[in-house]
Simulated scan of single mutants.
Amino acid sequence: MKKNKGKYSPQHTPANDGEVRAKKHLGQHFLTDESVAEKIADSLTWEGYENVLEIGPGMGVLTKYLLKKGVNLHVIEIDRDSVAYLDENYPTLEGKVHQEDFLKYDLRKIFPEGPYAIIGNFPYNISTQIVFKTLENREEIPEFAGMFQKEVAQRIAAPHGNKTYGILSVLTQAFYEVTYLLTVPPAVFNPPPKVESGVIRLTRKEDYSLPCDEALFFRVVKTAFQQRRKTLRNSLKIFQLPDNLREDAIFGQRPEQLSTEQFIELTLKIEPYAIST
């Protein structure tokens, strides 16, 4: 796993000016530190695409740095107050501010052709769902960067053998190279969250196709980690595998001990005996 860890001390700009109030039910914490916003904007490589989608721009502290990149930037924001603020303060985004729920919206309506990157200071309450939707649309998304709760960012980037390594780690790393970029303190947000944040970048692998049945791979990974303290021999009983296969050494390990490549190997072993659903 690539690691490029850093930690930033706050360089505060004036906080939320009152025009948009952070809404708890939307998981909003407005970033107020210009240096962190610039670092997030700089975290993308900007190679191989011209389209970029920012999720949850709020009042645009990150947006203004993205606009400087000269790319085709669209933003998606569910909060109507934030949308009104963006429409008023960012006239260059006319026609490119989408008041929609990212998780439910068909992204092909924004970018019908050509690849696009995703970036944002993600609401913590939907951040893992954002990653899973990115994986579903990986053919169109060569790069992804954003801010998560630190614990979630570390989980996505965790290597096998790490206690935080799990379903999200394996499925993300099957298709993307993950780089943990920096840790961000609560003081750079308004209101400040109770936890630290972490910024990561996902870069799609050159060959991101799986040599095994994809649906079965997802099923094997999720089933294995549902009983992560058990060996695979016990946690994968639902597949009703023959005894001679279950004697293979790989079944004597626990799920966190297997790399993504080993989970692919495991799926290939199971594939002749299982029906993918």
Rank of each mutant, 00 (worst) to 15 (best):
M1E: 07
R21W: 08
K24H: 02
Q28Y: 03
S35W: 10
A37C: 00
K39N: 05
L44T: 06
Y49T: 11
E50K: 15
N51K: 07
E54Y: 05
G60C: 02
V61F: 08
T63H: 02
K64Y: 08
G70W: 04
N72F: 13
L73M: 14
I78H: 05
I78R: 01
I78P: 09
R80W: 15
L93I: 08
K96I: 05
E100Q: 15
P112V: 08
G114L: 12
I118T: 03
Q149S: 03
E151K: 03
I156Q: 03
P159F: 10
G161H: 07
Y165N: 02
Y165D: 01
I167V: 15
A174L: 09
T183H: 00
P192E: 04
V195S: 11
Y208S: 10
Y208L: 08
P211N: 09
C212I: 11
R219I: 00
K222D: 03
Q226T: 12
R229P: 03
K230A: 01
R233W: 07
F239H: 00
E247C: 01
A249Y: 09
G252Q: 12
Q253K: 13
E256Q: 13
L268E: 14
I270H: 04
Y273T: 12
Y273A: 06
A274F: 14
S276G: 07
T277K: 15
